[in-house]
Amino acid sequence: MRETRILMGMPITVEIVGTSHSSIIELVFAYFRAVDARFSTYKESSEISRFNRGEISPENLSENMKEVLRISAQTRDQTKGFFEIRKPDGSLDPSGIVKGWAIKHAAGMISAAGLHDFYVEAGGDIQASGKNEDAGEWRVGIRSPFVMDQIIKVVTLRGQGMATSGNYIRGDHIYNPHDPAKRIEHIVSLSVIGPDILEADRFATAAFAMGEDGIAFLENRTGLEGYMVTADGIATQTSGFGAYVIS
């Protein structure tokens, strides 16, 4: 069964092959709601907002928050500082990693319930597992950054995650931490396939901020493949990306 809801300002879909999985699906949506309540920088009552206002000391943060901040710091170190959750005003905004982190944990909840054939998709980022309802591999379309109803690439995910960073519809939600005033205009979409959605998401965010160097960064990183679309309608892919491509 499949269910879509809008949470965290985006459509989130959970599909578990078979019927009568509504209780685990409810748990997954409740989990996303709890993640939003903790990590949303738009909510004054969230833990991240309270931390940014100095109302919580670092040692009193939740284990979840500590984990996200630790992964954020690790990602910053792995990406020459191109992944940076500290904004120019000094506050922390971990939203570049929370989505992938939450999808990974949601998928873990479904696996822990003994279910193997499912996917979780939030705002275009995906963790797939097992097979689809026809016992085939999950086939994933990459949406065109130019024409919303079109798919420009079809890939299969065999347990991997795929995340996409884009610049055209959410506005400037990613900026270059080394030059915050400079807009990243040329690249409109960068999809990354990684061993899981968290790996895909954090490196998609960082590689996008690198501009055209991002695809070379992905090429040099084991386990990550990328598909970059620039504003002129040209796609550039890493050398291992083709192994996932159906059409």
């Binding site: 689809n132 990459i142 950054p145 079809v154």
Partner: peptide, 12 residues
């Protein structure tokens, strides 16, 4: 090609 999931830049 037929797909089960659509990823990529989203209308969010």
């Amino acid at each position: 090609a037929k797909v089960q999931i659509i990823g990529g830049a989203t209308l969010t």
